[in-house]
Design a protein around this nucleic acid. Structure first.
Lengths: 233, 233
DNA sequence: CAGTATCCATTTCGATACTG
DNA sequence: CAGTATCGAAATGGATACTG
């Protein structure tokens, strides 16, 4: 296995890249994760043993470089790995356009918050500390409440109340917030229908859609559903 | 399996596309194959049972349409399938740039000739019949000699002498011709070193590199090998 | 933090032969 | 032509627990 026996460059690329999880690990590295346990948070359903194995393969293939710095292990994309951005982008754009709507099994609160917390528009946020509290009322016990703490030191994601004053509180179903995140629904509509609710001073509520940058694929135009044939308008 | 449990569009796309062979079948469909046994020639190492299975999955996913016309079964990409061109292109460009040099196990005479025969520049070829004879002296017995017959009716690939007068004869090792085909070597050099030899009237020999269009990825610029650090020139 | 170790159920695929 | 049928070997990966 692994080998297609073809000289075709597509086949050769897939020999490396069609292994389960591989491109998701690459995606994580492209979004800036550099440590083992950071990577794990981006691919939570992947076992650590398998992550190790994939990283080894990628290092071996010259796509990832592994080194130690100050006793911390660092994984980084090589130039070859960086160029996989075009592949990941093409895949994501295709996926958001053509894969069916999100099923319940695609929703993952941990992953959603992890994504949200690393895509905040820090420049748009006020100085000092900002605390975003999330309540996903239908998420599984233990993954229902989250806090994102932003200050000069960076951004922290917590699944336990850090005790700071909350700047704004965001309540939604897991599905509703995910749909906004991937661009299946838009902020205005989600807020108007109440699927996503913001609690806090109006001036700050208005800022939330600015602070939360959405998934890189949220803005991809969706295919226009084909008009029924024979209908004239 | 199949399911990553992620809302990420890259993960959703890979749920469909990371299965072994899938993107190669798509590639075949993108290059114009429409019938089962035509597809098989593009993925010769794939068992027919598996091809059936993949086609079913793709139809189910809305990427391929299957229908019968005049008792022939036809497979065709849907608009969703056509859009996978961007993915296949990105993969191929990456593969040709970053995968290691061709190993012996990547070489396949049948596949090479199949590719060559469907990428001839017919407009550049003379009227009447043209017969290209190939001799791959190191290919396995039975895959050593090939004839491509071009006439008004189209292009035919034969592994047995069709008996027509040969217009030009091309002799090379399997590796040498494959390397030219994927752009790892260029025509001029291959001819100069004799790795590829043409036999026939000079005026026609000059035409061969025009007639044989190369792989779509042959023209992709290759990465410049990094200069050794510390060397000044 | 950054992995190892273990273990087995499940899948998956390749090879080969056959069919309406 | 367009697939089915069958079978077994291999590997893949998920779950879980553990470690320096």
């Amino acid at each position: 296995m692994g080998n297609y026996g073809q000289f075709c460059p597509v086949a050769r690329a897939m020999e490396l890249l069609d292994e389960r999880w591989t491109l998701l690990v690459i995606r994580e590295l492209l979004s800036g994760s550099r440590h083992f346990n950071e990577l794990r948070r981006g691919v939570p359903r992947m076992s650590p043993a398998l992550l190790t194995k994939r990283l080894r393969t990628l290092v071996q293939a010259g796509v990832v470089e592994r080194y130690e710095d100050d006793d911390r292990v660092i994984y980084e994309l090589t130039p070859a790995g960086e160029e996989l951005q075009s592949v990941v982008e093409a895949l994501g754009m295709w996926g958001i356009r053509w894969m069916p709507e999100l099923g319940d099994e695609d929703l993952d609160p941990h992953l959603l918050l992890w994504d949200v917390h690393r895509n905040l528009d820090l420049d748009a946020m006020p100085d000092g500390r900002t605390v975003l509290a999330f309540h996903l009322f239908d998420a599984r016990q233990g993954a229902r409440d989250w806090w994102i703490v932003v200050n000069e030191d960076g951004v922290d994601l917590c699944d336990a109340d850090p005790g700071f004053e909350v700047t704004v509180r965001i309540e939604a179903s897991l599905r509703a917030l995910t749909r906004v995140w991937v661009g299946e629904a838009d902020w205005d509509e989600a807020l108007r229908t109440g699927e996503v609710q913001l609690h806090g001073p109006a001036s700050i509520r208005r800022q939330v859609p600015v602070w939360l940058e959405l998934s890189a694929f949220a803005a991809v135009p969706r295919p226009t559903p084909r008009e029924p044939v024979g209908v004239i308008d």
